[in-house]
């Protein structure tokens, strides 16, 4: 479904990605692990069209999407829930969600249906609907970020560090939502620092180090691998 081939990309002269390839198939949660600065977020930005790669290609559903504009990529069916949430604090929850559907230019009736479908996943957003996003708690903000990403009815969700800065209970909450989404048939490319938790819900995982994929494989197998446990889980 998603096929990233030999991507080289960076900021200015600094090359962050040095030939990254990965794939995600229908119905799976693929986890991208690695230390800070390994290039995980940069890869997501290349996929969602925020950064043009110097070399390599990205294909989605058999269609070449390399160097397309972000709005075209959203319309193609990829939704990127970025690191740090990047929700609009001065706008209301409703306005944030509205913009999630912006690329599709939705009609009123359609929007109401979409709102309803995100309320089913995140009932708290229904209560906070008219309030400012800035007044939400950290966990609620993360839910809003994911919900906003779902408003474009994605065929693939890119989730960047959804558990960052959240209390353990909320982290569990977010991970159970990831499971729900997977059950609903939305494949997810998940970037996480919380390696143990991520490997538990993922089907497969890639491990990145300084701009390259160094290991990949079945998530359960990686979780059982002594070397991986030692390096990434401290066990």
């Amino acid at each position: 479904m998603l096929k990233v081939s030999d991507i080289h990309a960076g900021y200015g002269r600094v090359e962050v990605l040095k030939g990254v390839s990965l794939e995600a198939s229908h119905g799976e949660v693929v986890c991208l692990l690695g230390a800070n600065g390994a290039g995980k977020s940069t890869l997501l930005r290349v996929i969602s069209g925020l950064i043009a790669p110097a070399k390599g290609s990205v294909a989605f559903l058999g269609q070449e999407i390399t160097r397309k504009r972000p709005d075209d990529i959203v319309r193609a069916g990829i939704s990127h829930v970025p690191e740090g949430r990047q929700i609009f604090f001065t706008l209301t929850v409703q306005q944030n969600l509205l913009l999630g559907a912006y690329a599709h230019g939705c009609k009123r009736a359609e929007l109401d249906k979409l709102y309803q479908s995100v309320f089913d996943l995140f009932p708290i957003l229904k209560e906070r609907f008219a309030g400012k996003a800035g007044s939400l708690s950290g966990g609620e903000q993360q839910m809003l970020a994911i919900a906003r990403g779902l408003m474009s009815r994605p065929k693939l969700l890119l989730l960047d560090e959804p558990s960052l800065g959240l209390a353990p209970l909320l982290v569990q909450n977010i991970f159970s939502i990831v499971k729900d989404l997977r059950a609903a048939g939305i494949p997810i490319l998940l970037v996480e620092q919380n390696v143990a938790a991520a490997l538990k819900i993922a089907d497969r995982a890639y491990i990145m180090e300084t701009g390259r994929i160094v290991t990949d494989g079945n998530a359960a197998a990686l979780l059982g691998d002594d070397e991986i446990r030692k390096r990434y889980l401290g066990m």
Binding site: S48, L50, R69, P70, D71, D72, I73, V74, R75, H80, P82, Q86, I87, F88, F89, T90, L91, Q95, L98, L99, G100, Y102, A103, G105, R148, S152
Partner: peptide, 23 residues
């Protein structure tokens, strides 16, 4: 209006706005 809200989003958070497909 959606366009007006989108312009405010751009003013507040360019990255977030770009990801929504707002130009």
């Amino acid at each position: 209006t959606t366009m007006g809200v989108a312009m405010r989003a751009c003013a507040e958070n360019r990255l977030g706005a770009s990801l929504m497909g707002i130009s």
